[in-house]
Amino acid sequence: MRKLGMAVLLVLLALPGALAQSCLAEVKARGLNVGTSPDYPPFEFLDSANKIVGFDIDLVNLLARELGIKVNWVTQSFDGLIPALLAKKIDVVAAGLTITEERKKSVDFSRPYISGPNVIITRKDTPGIRKLEDLAGKRVAVQIGSAQEKIAQGVKGAIVKSYNLYTEAALAVQTRQADALIVHRSVGRAFIQQYPDLQVVAELNSVDTGLAFRKECVDLRQAVDVAMEKLERSGKLEELVARWFK
């Protein structure tokens, strides 16, 4: 009898914990904390008034409106975003995050919302870089913790230079402090507009981009996926893509 009582007590103690697993209910009550790093145009960047704008910002705002949730934006360094997610400081990472197998070990991703290749960018006066293998012996600028950093590390002989911000990595190539930049194509285009002496010299494999969630927040991720599907069907997602990635 004592044993049974103990068991009932344990179940009762464990119950609130099990119930608290509903991230969706919690987020609906207190708002959705979305982490991003605004150095990645056109996904997220600061406009001339230093306000965060970009594709991810519009997308998350649309999704939140669909779900009837308030959004709180949390900005911090890119490499700290997934740790912040795991530490429950934020509920979602919306940072043009490439869906990789390695990241999937730690987080769950939404439906991919955009696909596109990574590209290699150099200065126009830098000769001899036409494909990934040409980066051997060259200084390759990327952002710390990015999927592109992984690609650069995979090139035999490449000297990988990891910067805090992608904008700094681009600046390093522009000022000849690095020979090449690996970045998502759409971001690369934005950098080239900013620095006309840079150019795309190679396109790499296409990758998918998604929002990242904590693994236990299944209900939140599923709700976001349903809302995303709705945006796809209504053509709103396509509209958004056209606006930011023309």
Binding site: G80, P83, I144, G145, S162
Partner: peptide, 14 residues
Amino acid sequence: TRAGQLVASRTFKP
């Protein structure tokens, strides 16, 4: 610091 940051950003164990 950067060495630690690189490992932390790869392993998500800051």
